Amino acid sequence: MTFASIETFETALASLTQPDAAAIAAAQARQAQLTKPAGSLARLEEIAIFFAGWQGRERPRIDRGRVAVFAGNHGVTVHGVSAFPADVTVQMVANFRAGGAAINALAKAADLELIIVPIDLDTPTADFTVAPAMSEAECLAALSAGAEAVEPGLDLIVVGEMGIGNSTAAAALATRSFGGAVADWTGPGTGLDGAGIARKIAVIERALQHHGSAPMTPFETLRRVGGREIAAIAGAILRARQLGIPVVLDGFIASSAIAPLAAANPGVTAHCIAGHCSAEPGHQKLLDQLGLNPLLRLNMRLGEASGGAVAVNIIRSALAAHAQMATFAEAAVSGRE
């Protein structure tokens, strides 16, 4: 599936599929019969019911889960907004493919297949302080690259990213989507000091001023101040919604991909779970805007879907308890009168 035009993208965002109400009711009824006090597994019960609705079955499962890490390069790095040079993106993609990164180990630990999707790494996006980061065709291609990473038959997908400079794009996306001061959305990213963060804030402010008269549509926001890997995540999330596949979001940058979409249609987050809240200062603020409560708070800030992959272990526990516990009748345990 590809987004062949802006209209295709906008139509997909405007016509969102909904979870299976019958499966939700069946899962809720099962929870009421399991050998435990009602509500005693708290968030684990909610996760199981959430997955039942999106998978359309009383006992959801993860037979085939996938991590998709999208990579792109950013022209805005010419302004010194990252503590690392842009060529680290290419080097880290090589590390992913060689099996040497954190996400390789964490995906394996969560029994998830891992795919790496580099997008035109030899062609950084334009410096978005003076021009749109992407042309319309480039943004559509990135959205389509994300959509193509999501296929029927997946039970869950975790979305993550790699791209030096992309926390700058994420802060710009969040500010343009939800307003507020740039400083409230901007953090150290790869490890900037105070002076670096101030420089990053000034760069984002210039970018937003430059694009201030542009239409405030999801597509225009993504293409003007986003990046290829971020647009790809948006495409993956939207395609997953079409297929009814639950999405686990990683950190601030992955979450920022859905910000322009959610600003236009808040319901777009209904099939998403926030895997964790990262140490990046704007992430909790963004999750609040998206209406998502993170599963974990481990002060992680690596990206590359690492926090999302760790969260899948919690999700597997929730689904295991839901599917494998005995009911009161099966265990011959007296339930509530």
Rank of each mutant, 00 (worst) to 15 (best):
A4D: 15
I6A: 12
E7I: 08
Q18C: 15
D20Y: 05
I24K: 03
A25C: 08
A32E: 10
A32S: 15
G39P: 07
G39V: 11
S40C: 09
A42G: 12
E45C: 05
E45K: 00
E46V: 07
I47L: 14
F50T: 01
F50I: 03
A52I: 05
G53E: 04
G53M: 02
R57S: 12
E58H: 03
R59L: 14
R61G: 15
R66K: 15
V67S: 03
F70T: 00
H74V: 06
G75P: 04
T77D: 08
P85S: 14
T89V: 04
V93H: 06
A94T: 11
A98M: 13
A102F: 10
I103C: 03
A105Y: 13
L106S: 04
A107W: 00
D111C: 15
D111G: 08
P118F: 04
L121P: 04
A126Y: 07
A131N: 08
C139M: 08
C139P: 11
A141M: 08
L143Y: 09
A145L: 05
G146Q: 02
E151L: 12
E151W: 10
L156C: 10
I157L: 11
G160C: 08
M162L: 11
I164K: 00
A171I: 01
L173W: 06
S177Y: 03
S177I: 00
G179M: 10
G180V: 06
P188R: 12
G196N: 04
R199I: 09
K200F: 09
V203F: 02
I204N: 00
A207P: 01
A207F: 02
L208D: 10
H210V: 12
G212W: 01
A214F: 10
P215N: 08
P215S: 06
M216C: 15
R224Y: 05
G226V: 00
G227W: 01
E229K: 01
L238P: 00
L238K: 01
R239Y: 10
Q242I: 10
L243Y: 08
S255I: 02
S255L: 04
S256Q: 04
S256V: 04
P260S: 05
A263P: 08
P266Y: 07
V268S: 01
T269H: 05
G275L: 05
L296C: 07
L296D: 07
A305Y: 03
A305V: 06
S306C: 11
G308P: 10
G308D: 04
V312P: 00
N313M: 15
Q324W: 13
E337R: 12
